[in-house]
């Protein structure tokens, strides 16, 4: 199935672009967003990469600015994970202040140390992704994922945490049963004012993660594309990624082969031998890609003569990728 067919399949809503760093995920995400917006769909492109480059691709400062309108129907969001984390810290502190009138010193220390952990910004980004989707303001959500290993961990987060939350909820329910037993036998009512709050928070986290796990794992509303270039290392990385994603029950919808040199270069006498040698290398690797991934190849995107940056250039690129 071609990239265009998958993207425009009725019901399609979430498009994820993953792959090794520097192979064109951001450009392809932005190109797809530009194409869909030109077709009258309200689209947002969101970067989950801490080293996001949507700002560079769209030539517009997006970092930490929230949902920015770039043109008719086209929006972009590049979150500043650090500021999301500090806002989150502040909201936790405020809640504790409202509940108890002060934030004990050891709790304050814990809030600070927890926020300094690297997993924190990953989780904050993931939560922002859930928030954005749950708000439901767009026809299409395009996610420019972080590089391979991180993306796998990131996308499997929902299913792993979902299992974990189920266990915690079970422990909490068992505790409630014990409380009931004590009450029945002795008539003593154990304090349960926090109990309700904890269970409500757990249920909310569970429903958000479950919602996200369905989106990531399902293939009716969601497509996951892996970007590769015709080079050995990228091909090997893609093979590993397919296996890793599969471990978490996530299947790729398609592979996009990016930065492919035009074959015509080989017959042009003015093209230097160095470049011809690279074209031949790519052709051999294209054969390997066809053998290894066959039906998964959704698009072959040519190497552009200049970097696709800015709305006008992205529209032109969209014309080539989605012709």
């Amino acid at each position: 199935m071609s990239l265009k067919d998958i993207v425009e399949r009725p019901g399609m809503k979430y498009l994820l672009f993953a792959g090794k760093g520097g192979l064109g995920k951001t450009t392809l995400s932005a190109t797809t967003a530009s194409y869909l917006a030109s077709r009258g769909k309200k689209v947002i492109v969101f970067s989950t990469d801490p080293q996001a480059s949507l700002t560079d691709v769209f030539e517009c400062d997006l970092f930490g600015k929230g949902e920015v309108k770039l043109s008719e129907n086209l929006y972009a969001l590049e979150i500043d994970a650090d500021s999301v984390v500090s806002d989150y810290q502040a909201s936790v502190r405020k809640k504790i202040m409202d509940m108890y009138g002060e934030v004990p010193e050891e709790i304050e220390d814990y809030i600070k140390s927890a926020s300094a952990q690297p997993a924190m910004s990953e989780s904050a980004t993931f939560d922002s992704m859930i928030e954005l989707i749950m708000a439901g303001n767009y026809d299409y959500y395009i996610f420019d994922m972080m590089p391979h290993g991180h993306a796998i961990r990131f996308l499997s987060m929902a299913s792993l945490l979902d299992v974990w939350i189920n266990k915690v909820v079970d422990i909490r329910k068992d505790s409630q049963e014990v409380d009931e037993r004590v009450k029945r036998i002795s008539g003593k009512q154990l304090e349960d004012k926090e109990e309700k709050g904890i269970l409500e928070e757990l249920q909310d986290i569970k429903s958000r993660l479950g919602f996200m796990a369905n989106i990531i794992g399902g293939r009716d509303l969601t497509a996951l594309f892996y970007v590769v270039i015709p080079e050995q290392m990228a091909i090997m990385d893609t093979e590993v990624a397919i296996k890793e994603f599969r471990k978490f029950g996530i299947e790729l919808s398609g592979i996009i082969v990016n930065q492919v040199y035009p074959e015509g270069l080989l017959s042009d006498p003015d093209v230097p031998e160095f470049l011809k040698s690279r074209v031949r290398m790519q052709q051999r690797n294209m054969e390997t890609i066809r053998q290894k991934f066959g039906n998964l190849i959704a698009a072959k995107v040519p190497m552009m003569d200049k970097e696709p940056k800015g709305l006008e250039m992205l529209e032109k690129t969209a014309g080539i990728v989605y012709r």
């Binding site: 927890a114 952990q117 924190m120 989780s123």
Partner: peptide, 9 residues
């Protein structure tokens, strides 16, 4: 993950 610990804190 500490993000969720903080929600329950």
């Amino acid at each position: 993950p500490p993000y969720y610990s903080l929600r329950l804190l």
